[in-house]
Structure formats: structure tokens, C-alpha cells
Write a protein that binds this DNA or RNA. Structure first.
Lengths: 116, 116
DNA sequence: CATTCATTCAACCTTTTGGTTGAATAATAC
DNA sequence: GTATTATTCAACCAAAAGGTTGAATGAATG
């Protein structure tokens, strides 16, 4: 992406890819080397290596070099930022819409509420 | 993105763009027409219209047509999913690393903890 | 009805993304 | 010292993303 991205931008962008979210998930069980990490994925090691670098750039992964092996560790701090941003909207969850929302519901609109 | 994406994929992908996150933020104050929405952005109306469609595709925005005007409303349910996914990692925030993590900290590694 | 206004559609363009393959580098093992 | 192993670097590629402009559609307005 663009040059100067905010931390939040970087985190969201990094997490937008499902493979990278799987990597994050796998790293909760402890450190893994790049090769270990790549093992269950149906893509080249190189591809995984790139994904790791994206996560690293977003601060979601920390790398510890030990000889030729690179151990990756989850660093969840950026996830906290994502959670913080997201939970700003808690009051809008539950479809319990505030004043305006309910008003609009009443005047029928196109109400096919069952979608998604 | 690809054909069949999960809801979570769609939500994360939609939120990866800072413009779209701004749109979401603006919609907390109530419904807006596409034109209103586009007004503060330094890009064409068409570009904003596209962003809205992405958000709609991810279920983050609901559209209500009234004559020629389209009123957009926030639908935060997908944000809840994002929050849920994210908060799986709460226990990793705070650098209070679990068993393995602390073990690794002890054997020094390359510990320049102050970054980001 | 002719205009203007609100919006999308369609085509196009450039940059980014996500993947590939084939070296290069550098540490370990034989 | 020569393989082998772990990883990155570099070049390339196709597809997607994010933007543009110009035209189409369809309501509202004079």
C-alpha cells in the first residue's frame, strides 16, 4: 500500500487476507519457523514468507533469528487497536438502532431484514 | 476479491481501506445520501459510490432508495464478527505472553522490546 | 418537455497484491 | 569442503483494487 500508513491501516490491511489471519491464528500456539508455518498451506514457502513480512510490517509478528532459522512469534498489540476501533460500534450491533434508525424502520423502507 | 468469500473476509477486506473506515465512522451519526457522504472526500463521487458498494457487499451498509436519492445506513453486525475474531487474542495483548512466550523471553533472544 | 440532480454503469488506467520460479546467501551436517 | 537446509531476494505475472472520465438512467423541478 501507500507510503505512510497508520498502524491501524497496516493492521487492517494485513488482516484482510485470510491466509494471514490463519497464520496469526496458528501463532497463538507458540513460535514457529517460517518452514513450519508454511507447511499446511497450499502455496509456496516464498508466498508464506511474503505474508509473514506483511504481518511483520504491521507489527503483528515478531521475528527472532537463530542461526539460519527464523522463529516467528505473535505480537497481538495491533490487534488490540483493531478491537478498539471496532468496538466503537458496539452500540450499533444488535440491530437495536438508535432514534433515527427505528424511525426509518417504521416507514417500511425496503425491509428484507433477513439478508446476510 | 475472489468469488466466494466468507463474511469475515468481506468485512476485513472492506475495512482495510481507510476511506471506507471513514465512511463507516461518518455513518454513525445517521443516514446519509451518497452525495452527502462523498462531500468531504478528496475524490470523485464515483469513487465514493464504489466504496459504498464494497461496504454494502460486506453487509456493513444498508441502502434505502427514496426516489433518486439513496440513503445509506450503517449496519454494524459484521463489525461484531470482526470484534469477535479479534478479541480471541485478548490474552496476547499486554505482552503478557503465555507460557512459551515468557520462556522465550528468558533465554534473551534479540530483545529490543521497545519498537512500534 | 427540457433541465437539472442523484446515482450508477462502463471503459479505461495505474498501482498493489498475491502468487510463481529461479537464484543468492548463510548456517548446519556429513 | 561439499551437500543440504532455511530463508530471502529478484524478476516476473495475472488479477484485483482504487481511482478517473464520460455516458446512461431516472427522479424532481421550472
Amino acid at each position: 500500500m501507500n507510503v505512510a500508513m497508520s498502524n491501524l491501516d497496516l493492521a487492517f490491511a494485513a488482516l484482510a487476507d485470510p491466509t494471514r489471519r490463519r497464520i496469526v491464528a496458528r501463532l497463538t500456539r507458540g513460535e514457529l519457523r517460517v518452514t513450519d508455518l508454511a507447511q499446511p498451506f497450499a502455496m509456496s514457502l516464498n508466498a508464506v514468507s511474503k505474508h509473514v513480512k506483511v504481518l511483520e510490517g504491521a507489527g503483528l509478528v515478531r521475528r527472532r533469528r537463530e542461526g539460519r532459522e527464523h522463529y516467528l512469534r505473535l505480537r497481538a498489540a495491533p490487534l488490540r487497536e483493531v478491537a478498539k476501533w471496532t468496538s466503537q460500534y458496539e452500540r450499533f450491533w444488535n440491530q437495536r438502532l438508535d432514534a433515527l434508525g427505528t424511525f426509518l424502520d417504521q416507514q417500511q423502507g425496503n425491509d428484507d431484514e433477513g439478508s446476510q
